[in-house]
């Protein structure tokens, strides 16, 4: 069962990153990226890396990607025009070579699986990590406030 969940998570990550690569709509791309980020966060939580996993979902997917979505909806970006076949070919060439080189260059990466239950996540979150997550949230709030101030300044 655990392996099945892991396989589904990996599959979801690959599918959502492909959607970002192939879509012509900015909004769909941003939504797929939010899904991608959240799935990575779930994977990290499942592998017992609770703080980075929670931060990934709460701060990165919940904060930064929402900023991007907000900007895209505010600017009202339209779909990109269809590309000529040569450009698509060059894109695939870039994708293929980068994939090959990064796969060959990366060292053996594997998680040391310790396994974690939902109850443990709750306990750990409330007892140990609560103050840290709150700290990140406060820091992010200050960034958000400065962002809004900057936008309102530019409108005047």
């Amino acid at each position: 069962m655990a392996q099945l969940i892991e396989a589904v998570l990996y599959f979801g990550i690959i599918v959502s990153s492909s959607v970002v690569l192939f879509t012509r709509y900015a909004l769909v791309g941003a939504l797929a990226l939010a899904v991608n980020t959240s799935l990575i966060g779930f994977l990290l939580i499942k592998k017992d890396l609770l703080f980075i996993g929670l931060g990934q979902i709460a701060v990165y997917a919940g904060g930064i990607i929402v900023f991007i979505l907000f900007t895209i909806t505010m600017l009202g970006l339209k779909a990109e025009i269809k590309k000529p076949i040569t450009e698509i070919f060059v894109g695939f060439l870039i994708f293929g070579t980068t994939f090959l080189f990064s796969y060959l260059a990366l060292p053996d990466l594997d998680f040391v699986d310790r396994g974690v239950s939902v109850v443990e996540i709750g306990k750990k979150f409330l007892n140990d990590l609560f103050i840290h997550v709150i700290t990140v949230a406060i820091l992010l709030n200050s960034v958000l406030v400065s962002y809004i101030l900057l936008i309102s300044d530019s409108r005047e």
């Binding site: 894109g91 870039i94 994708f95 293929g96 980068t98 994939f99 990366l106």
Partner: peptide
Amino acid sequence: VAFLISSGLG
């Protein structure tokens, strides 16, 4: 990881 990096660069 390789897939994410290469699709990002793409």
